[in-house]
Design a protein around this nucleic acid. Sequence first.
DNA 1: TCTCTGACTACAA
DNA 2: ATTGTAGCCAGAG
Length: 132
Amino acid sequence: MDSGEFHAAVYEKVREIPPGRVTSYGHIAKLIGMPRHSRHVGQALKFLSPQTNPPVPWQRVIGASGAVSSRGPGTDGAQRQRDALEAEGVEVTTGRTGEMRVDLAQYGWFPAPAPAAARGDEEDEEEEDQAE
DNA sequence: TCTCTGACTACAA
DNA sequence: ATTGTAGCCAGAG
């Protein structure tokens, strides 16, 4: 797989993330069949242009711990990401130092990757119910 | 070719 | 909860 195809695959999966949901880099990597390329998923996203068509909801991709990454505190990416997520109804908690996190128990979206050896397509996903 | 870095993840202390 | 270490893989210098 070329890096171009890798990027394309990443964008494709990211676009499949339903609004109001978030997933992790690692899971995107799994979905495209490269579970070890979690870092390069983020790499592909930063390579993304602001005006892609169709648009890629990169803001729905966060760390596996629910932590929003976007380059150090000096960058604005994190701010844009938080704004975009809240606009979709995702609750983003912000700490004192600007640490932004999302509750994966509520907004996490982790469908099972499509196994090549599997025959029946399974559009199933864990509808985890929130429990305060 | 080697070394370092990175929008990562998982595990140990 | 926080910090450190290790594994990971591709790109840049």
